[in-house]
Design a protein around this nucleic acid. Structure first.
Length: 132
RNA sequence: GAUUCAUGUUGGGCAGUUGCCCCGCUUACCAGCGGGGAGGAAAGUCCGAACUCCGCAGAACAAAGUGCCGGGUAACUCCCGGGGUGCCGAUUUAUUCGGUACACGGAAAGUGCCACAGAAAAAACACAGCCCCGAGUUUAUCGAGGGGCAACGGUGAAAAGGCAGGGUAAAAGCCUACCGCUCCGGAAGUAAUUCCGGUGGUCUCGAAAGAGAUCCCGACUUUGUCGGGACAGGGCAAACCCCACUUGGUGCAAGGUCAAGCAGAAGGUUUCCGCAGGGUUCGCCCUCGGACAGGGUUGUUCGCCCUGAGCGCCUUCGGGUAGACCGCUUGAUUGCAGCAGUAAUGCUGUGACGAGAUAAAUAACUGCCGUCCCGAUUUUUUUCGGGAAACAGAAUUCGGCUUAUAGACAUGAAUCAUCA
RNA sequence: UGCCCCGUAGUGUAAUUGGCAACACGUCUGACUCUGGAUCAGAAGACUUCAGGUUCGACCCCUGACGGGGCAG
């Protein structure tokens, strides 16, 4: 397994998993309120599972902007997921995460770069780790 | 030379690290190596097709669309060429040239509408008015009444061909010349269309269309033939409509293959014993007793209690959900050259092809170079620091149209400045 | 991917054979009141989303953009 990779079986791909997260999960907000994360935690599981997805609503901006935000979210998650992964592996949790933008949109943040996203992602990951 | 606008082309490059998607190979479920990975609009979804399934003997109607003519094309609400009309500019004084815009069939098939104003808004019930006759009487520049007329007046977006002359009681295409319109004939052109010539009367038959006779005019093959308007009824069809032409519906989540789970159907299995009792359609069923199996009862054994069902299990079948795969990218493709054509485009030769995802990849960061801007330094060149780089993301595939686009380059127009 | 609807004062709605853009709330000014509210009187506020076209004349008809909303699988 690559250290900073994010391959297909680490991502949420089925519709059932999404409905699980949105119906029975809970929602966390970053400290600056710019991002939000919907998560689902289950304790008893044979093997540790950590799956992620990145969702951006159509109301935030056009297709180019939405794709860019998703790529930046994925990039910052990919670079900072190591400690969360170790926690999940040691405690044998089942964890689903969906990261989304909360207050940022294309009108306010036309040009968006990685530094704008990274700190909020790290903050959200720390919150999730505290919940485990 | 600068700025602005319009049109067209282009839409930064190289290297490294960390990642993602597809293909191939090595491996064996973890990886490694190699190759490839957004656009001119991928957008809007406004048209046209390919392809798919469904429907369909044929015809007609309905509905929708198109609408000067010819060509191109697989097809088109597209493109090219030509014509007409309007506007602008130049030339010039009645034409020619250039640019530009145009949904540009039919208003004489019918229906409808044209507010306000105006007498009247469509084959005029004529307001003010003009002219003639004129009872009457106050004899006048009066006038009941009857008749003729539509020139002139104001309104309006639009008022029933224009102008001039004749004509008349006053008038009128009532007549004439020119123009315009319509129609007819001839010529040019594939056609739209253009050019040239002509565009009178009387009588008879007929509902009309039209036919015939005669006079006149013109032409010619010259005594015969041919041709010869009704000056009418404005606009709107992006109002209904008429005419001509076109169109079956559906859309890759089309459609097809495999197929968990759940539900369904069919079949099999569905404990054994009793000279016990009863019933029987002779397959079997019910009751009782015993064994056997499973469960419960307290931790174990015995004992006791419950159960032995059409339940469960197994096999097969059809349809088919989740899911997987195919459709899925080489095609009405495109660069260059030649030929045909005014052009759109076509043909031939030769070369190229390098996305195929499906909660949806094509990215992030760093450095250097190139472009532009700002600041410092410098006579300038240079150097240093900071900043900017658009519109926008494939989703079955093509042909168009429309819209969005920083900077650079090219062409054209306008304005300003400088020089000659 | 395909399809449908809407756009009018600050806000919510009217206005159709095509003929003066209307109403309510809100805003402003004045009156009443010690002040405010309520009430009364009056006023302002629209290039009818934008750009073209048809027409004498367009919120209305046509074409193209832009924005918003919705539906189906």
């Amino acid at each position: 397994m690559k250290r900073f990779g994010l391959s297909a079986n680490e991502r949420i791909k089925s519709r059932n998993d999404f409905e699980l997260v949105y119906t029975s999960g809970e929602v966390l907000f970053s400290s600056s309120n710019r991002l939000k994360a919907a998560i689902l935690i289950r304790n008893e599981n044979e093997e540790a599972v950590l799956k992620t997805a990145f969702a951006v609503s159509r109301k935030c901006g056009n297709a180019v902007w939405r794709n860019r935000v998703k790529r930046l979210l994925r990039e910052s998650f990919r670079l900072n997921k190591e400690s969360l992964k170790a926690e999940v592996d040691s405690k044998r949790k089942f964890l689903l995460v969906v990261l989304s933008p909360n207050t940022i949109n294309q009108k306010k943040n036309k040009k968006i770069i990685l530094k704008d996203i990274m700190n909020d992602v790290i903050d959200l990951l720390n919150q999730i780790r505290a919940k485990l």
